[in-house]
Design a protein around this nucleic acid. Structure first.
Lengths: 259, 259
DNA sequence: GCAAAAGTGTTCATCGTACACCCATGG
DNA sequence: CCATGGGTGTACGATGAACACTTTTGC
């Protein structure tokens, strides 16, 4: 509330430290479906909390948007060029005692990106940067309230998968329907792997009708037994998603009180 | 990034001003359905932006949660005791140039409350506090980026209404199904007023089955023509909501790019 | 009694699911 | 030629929407 004059312009006194943290999710193919959904964690080499695992994050610069800061966090902590990646704000965590170094308010973000062509290089103040299966994350030992962030991010991502087409962010240009199905199975429910191609395809009838999901006319190169799957391409707006409603509602946790 | 020692404990330098703003929605009965959905706006008497209409907001105190600050905003700006009201974080708005007085980061919240027993009293730095139909809000003339906040809050509330039971937050203890229907109609689509009682009731079959929505066994006192409606009570957790899926999907804006 | 509003039950179309069948590859 | 996995079409069951009908009030 403290005010002070500055060149005739009213100026407010800073009262907090603002940071961003990024929950970067990926789905790794050729992995057991239960471990395919993974998150980027970094082991801190900061003055405080040395050795602790945490989400990548940085303090927000004076003239920097949250979005830019979040991408910079991925750049400086793991040498990832996140330009163009799917990134959205998750929520802000600001409990007064969440950080012992002061009133640190962190704007958490969620990013989704396929990782088969990425290499993680530990950046500044980082000992290691690794992909960790979300169900293996040592929640209790994460720094700050990053376990909370991760939990909320997981729920939000599961919802997003149901209400939008973000799943395509986790696939290359050309992909097969079984690959697409594995994205949903890894994040929502492994039982989806048992879904028939026909039934799975019907869930995307709108996209086929609108021309946003088109068959490429090629077959995937078969490296294993069985018929090679057809290749498809997603022609929706880059980095954008549409609202939608997925038919299959799995693991319905109705009757459970919300947070 | 600037650090300084303080009693041997590492302390981070404040780099921003953190505030909260509240989008308080209500649905006013006995109002044209198109104007029934209303939002609380206050006319500023602050040193800056005098006369401008804005959402109620305050700076966050050093040892205060966002939730507490948001309720304090309603208290100090409109003399509303928001203890126990439904309140959730919406998102954080922090564009570097959103406030000319410095790097002000605002954590926006959404609150839902019935208003038939409330009286608005302008508080500190406030000339007037009024309910404004959301479709009448002079978006361009709102202070800061509050027009953006309001737009996002409206979308979020519409989604929440579809995915949860928050609608009951906008009704008194005892209410009728037509009243409940008017909540959905005011926020989602006026055409819902034409829904048959039978079909509308089926949407809440789960709640009836679980005992969360029970008939009181009374009739509403009929002040107008037509049969008086039966009274019901919602016995879900106070201030809580369950996940759910509403059957009727109105005004589907598929094929429209998301923000 | 009549119009208006609320509540009930039935019918019909739609859609998700299950399943049977066909195709293509590796061994 | 057989096992495995991908792809297609059909049939059945659940459910949301439309509607006809009954109940209860004000005028």
């Amino acid at each position: 509330m403290a005010l002070r004059a500055n060149r005739g312009q009213q100026v407010l006194q800073s009262n907090a430290i603002v940071a961003v943290d990024v929950v970067l999710f990926t789905v790794r193919p050729k992995t057991e479906i239960e471990q395919a959904w993974q998150v980027l964690l970094v082991q801190r080499d900061d003055a405080a909390f040395v050795g602790k695992w945490s989400l990548p994050g940085v303090l927000v610069h004076a003239d920097e948007t949250f979005d830019a800061a979040a991408r910079r966090a991925l750049q400086t902590k793991a040498s990832l060029d996140a330009a163009g990646w799917y990134l959205e704000q998750l929520g802000t965590f600001g409990h007064p005692s969440r950080d012992t170094r002061g009133r640190v308010v962190s704007v958490a973000h969620v990013a989704l990106q396929r990782s088969d062509e990425l290499t993680l290089v530990p950046g500044s103040d980082v000992l290691r940067a690794e992909w960790v299966p979300v169900r293996w994350v040592p929640a209790e030992s994460l720094a700050f309230d990053h376990a909370d962030m991760l939990r909320v991010a997981m729920q939000r991502t599961q919802s997003k998968l149901r209400y939008s087409w973000v799943a395509f962010q986790l696939l290359p240009e050309k992909f097969t329907l079984p690959e697409l199905r594995s994205i949903y199975a890894a994040i929502l429910d492994p039982a989806l792997l048992r879904l028939n191609t026909s039934n799975f395809k019907k869930a995307f009838a709108e996209l086929f009708a609108s021309g946003a999901l088109v068959p490429v006319g090629q077959r995937a190169t078969a490296g294993r037994v069985g018929r090679p799957a057809d290749l498809y391409a997603f022609c929706g707006p880059l980095g954008g998603t549409w609202e939608r409603e997925l038919p299959w509602q799995m693991e319905r946790d109705l009757h459970a009180p919300a947070s």
